[in-house]
Design a protein around this nucleic acid. Sequence first.
DNA 1: CGAGGGGTTGACGCCGATCAAAGCTGGTGG
DNA 2: CCACCAGCTTTGATCGGCGTCAACCCCTCG
Lengths: 243, 243
Amino acid sequence: MGNESGQSFCTNAEWMGRAHCDKCHIRQLMLFSELPDTAFEHLLAPIDHFLYPPGSVLYEAGTHKPFIYSIRRGMVKLVHAAQDGSNRIVRLLGNGSAIGLELLDGSKSYHHTAIAVNQVDLCKIPVSTVRQLESEHPALCKHVGKQLQDQLNIADQWIVALGTGAARQRVAQLVLVLEEFFSEDNGAFILLNREDMAAMTGIAVETVSRIVAEFKRQKILYRFKDNFYMCNVAALQELSRYG
Amino acid sequence: MGNESGQSFCTNAEWMGRAHCDKCHIRQLMLFSELPDTAFEHLLAPIDHFLYPPGSVLYEAGTHKPFIYSIRRGMVKLVHAAQDGSNRIVRLLGNGSAIGLELLDGSKSYHHTAIAVNQVDLCKIPVSTVRQLESEHPALCKHVGKQLQDQLNIADQWIVALGTGAARQRVAQLVLVLEEFFSEDNGAFILLNREDMAAMTGIAVETVSRIVAEFKRQKILYRFKDNFYMCNVAALQELSRYG
DNA sequence: CGAGGGGTTGACGCCGATCAAAGCTGGTGG
DNA sequence: CCACCAGCTTTGATCGGCGTCAACCCCTCG
């Protein structure tokens, strides 16, 4: 079952301690950007900071723990499990994204299962804390809205790019997404395993493998180091359009 | 080009006059639910009320008029036009939904083209008015967030239900969506034309037609009156799962 | 060294895209 | 009132892409 095999790790998640939002060096990227430092002085419930290994299940669809999560670093996949046992990856989120926001809208449970794709560094924020901060600082509401709008844009792109066209076009689009949103400073990105790529595009694993292997042979996609890859963006854009 | 042929109507849109939000009988369904009546006394820019015939283009992707829209009654499709000329319908929205919200998040232009599917009754709200109301009534921010969360849920459902599985499963899911979200009091719903159904599911028009015709022969789907249809929900749910 | 998990490749058959043509239906004009 | 037309729907025939089953390779780990 792919990365889910790491599920046993989730109890081993390394607790990094209480978060110090007022001293957070990446706060401008996060949900609490623009809140004043003083906003965090009298929180009723603590914000904790965790490091999860790849494959960890952050939460499961249908369950209800009163936390949302803000991703500091790493990739998280939101998975929908169909009744026939197959999985579909609905969204892939990275640095600065917040997940579990459906709880703020009154949903009693998470809508998806959230799984760490690589090592994930995140803050776990009690819903009650968000509500407290929202009431004291209405600006936070807008940032939640911005998160939702961003995710809506991603979902729309998913429908258009990964849900349409021939298999080769979809895989090309997927690689472009990885390159654009998940590459490191050097432009290299982690190539997901074939099962995850299949679950994102709605294509059979073998077909994905064939196409990826073809891209590698054509040098459109090539290993940079370890599991990091680089790609020929122009060639992939051409493929994603015409095939 | 299907309903887009009605594009010429858009200049004929019937202006129904200034909206009277304080007297609106369906405000509890709309964006401005829970705002006090007094909120609308000193608006800088007016809210107008329109009636659009089927096929009207409400706005086009990439353009930027400073308005969002709140749908009082009717169905609107959000369309993404691919560079190869094909269209993909990204979302179908109905009574109580707001569209064009991306403008509130700072987007310079609409992300999709919005087209009336049937007769659409809506309010056209200047962005400046929303901002004014938001600053005076922070609660409005939450309602915008709720709209976004709703649309995100719809987009996720779209990915899972209409972007996955065999053609027959997708068409079954689509009919169920129409039945669930767009049926009248009597349980009958408008069956979209085949081209729109194809653009929603990513299937060829002929294949959709074959499957719909098959459903009709099996009496799983039958005409109620005019273009209104009814369906056997249980049978379609079975089909949507196993095929 | 063997076991196991992922990735790659081959063979085959079916689903669905495509091209083509024939019903249907509602609207228009004689 | 009927003939005609245009657009949509339905159906047929054909073919290629991709899902499926299966084997094999490669790498890691015990």
